[in-house]
């Protein structure tokens, strides 16, 4: 589903953020990406969502070489990827409903379909009752769930999350991860970047570890999960 081949990324200014990274995420897989702050996790996710381009090497999604995607077509690629960010990236002057509906409006869904799908997505994250509130009136955990609802509302085959639990306490973090598990069970490939090793330790998922831009570990976490 997602494949990196000898990918390096040098930022303008000469900083080497990723160095010769290779890995493959299978369809329907749920994978964690970890490493200290500055290890290159965000950079790696940005190469998938085409917010950055690799300096060397190739990135494939579903067998398609992303280097062939033109600037014009980037938007269409992003419609296949649900993205979740640590700072939510919600529109504060719109309601929760409008935020979640945004991807569908962009794709030209009919009003009826938008209504049905937004309701379903908000129901999944348990926020249907807050659909008419502005995001600012919601707690941090709730705002993150709105971001998740927006990411999954058009049922993308790939979900990318960059530090989705960054500001949340452990209980709330686990709740968020459970949501991702549910979407993964429904068929999506899920790729979560986090530096919260304690969180990963409680799961049995494949974990890719970055250090200074290099992939130093690709495997299951050692410690058996402590289920909440």
């Amino acid at each position: 589903m997602i494949k990196f081949e000898e990918v390096s990324k040098t930022y303008p200014g000469g900083h080497l953020a990723l160095s010769k990274v290779n890995f493959h995420v299978a369809p329907g897989e749920m994978v964690f990406l970890t490493g200290h702050s500055g290890a290159g996790k965000s950079t790696l996710l940005k190469l998938i969502s085409l917010m950055e381009r690799p300096s060397v090497g190739r990135v494939y999604i579903n067998g398609h070489d992303l280097s062939r995607i033109t600037r014009r077509d980037v938007a269409y690629v992003r419609r296949d990827i649900g993205m979740i960010f640590q700072n939510h990236q919600l529109l504060m002057d719109k309601t929760v409903f409008d935020n979640v509906a945004l991807p569908l409006v962009i794709e030209g869904y009919s009003r009826k379909q938008i209504y049905a799908r937004v309701h379903a997505a908000l129901d999944r994250v348990g926020l249907l009752h807050k659909q008419n509130n502005p995001p600012a009136t919601l707690s941090g955990g709730e705002q993150q769930r709105v971001g998740i609802a927006r990411a999954v509302v058009n049922r993308p085959p790939i979900i990318l999350a960059d530090e989705p639990t960054g500001n949340l306490d452990p209980a709330l973090s686990l709740e968020i991860i459970r949501l991702f598990e549910a979407f993964n069970k429904a068929g999506a490939s899920v790729f979560i970047a986090t530096h919260d090793l304690g969180l990963i330790a409680r799961m049995h998922y494949r974990t890719l570890t970055l250090k200074g831009g290099q992939m130093i570990n690709d495997g299951l976490t050692e410690t058996p999960g402590v289920q909440a």
């Binding site: 014009r72 269409y76 992003r78 529109l91 945004l102 991807p103 927006r150």
Partner: peptide
Amino acid sequence: RSEILVMKLVGATDSF
């Protein structure tokens, strides 16, 4: 600006 950034993140084309 921030609204445009978010729209681009969720797949809006420039023309939209």
